[in-house]
Design a protein around this nucleic acid. Structure first.
Length: 198
DNA sequence: GTCCTGATGTGCT
DNA sequence: GCACATCAGGACA
């Protein structure tokens, strides 16, 4: 692949200031790019979930604003990374306007650039295991909680246009939660090998 | 292939 | 004290 400059430039703020479900849907096919020690690591987003507002029983904002979830209450277009299960990081994209807590969890990527480094960071050789889950992709791209609150219109971590391929979008309940599973707020590329749960 | 379990740190209801 | 937006590895078929 030889993308033009336009297609690897960060998406503008406006992209993130829309309805969270629209953003989650529109993130499919885009490139998530992370600068790891001067090297660009990139993957195509193939699975994403929306977490919207204090009324969403699965959203981290369900008990109100805290030190941990504070960035979700800020303006869209920033990263929200949190640590869970004692060993995994989860990468989210904050959406909508200042004061309304909402974010999209990036659940899976198709590796595009920097596969050798992803292999080292993941400690495995099977490409399908590099980024086929929210914890895996953070490890593969070198993302941890020190990357929370980063402006995605900058060049450290960002999302770019791409959408090289044709794909169909499937919709389902969210994965790994106990409440709010009735809301069909998960979007993924139909048939893509890197989707965490088909 | 499937199912089940343990690992492990942080924030809070 | 316990829940948690997960994953890898082991048991079994």
């Amino acid at each position: 692949m030889t993308p033009s400059k336009d297609r690897i430039r960060p998406l503008a703020r406006d992209f993130y200031l829309r309805d969270t479900l629209e953003v989650a849907h529109d993130l499919l096919g885009r490139l998530l790019i992370s600068d790891f020690r001067g090297q660009k690591l990139a993957g195509r987003i193939v699975e994403a979930e929306a977490y919207i507002g204090e009324d969403d029983p699965a959203c981290h904002a369900r008990f109100g604003k805290t030190k941990r979830n504070g960035v979700m209450y800020g303006i869209g277009g920033f990263s929200y990374v949190y640590f869970i299960y004692g060993m995994y990081n989860m990468f989210n994209v904050v959406c909508e306007t200042e004061g309304f807590p909402a974010a999209v969890l990036i659940r899976a990527l198709e590796p595009v650039h920097g596969l050798d480094t992803m292999c080292e960071l993941r400690g495995c050789k099977d490409v399908r295991e590099f980024t086929s889950g929210p914890g895996k992709l953070c490890q593969a791209l070198g993302i941890d909680t020190t990357h929370s609150g980063i402006d995605l219109t900058g060049d450290r971590i960002y999302i770019a246009e791409d959408m090289d391929q044709e794909f169909e979008v499937e919709r389902s309940g969210r994965i790994g939660i106990k409440e709010g599973t009735d809301r069909l707020w998960r979007f993924y590329m139909k048939g893509n090998d890197f989707v965490s749960v088909q």
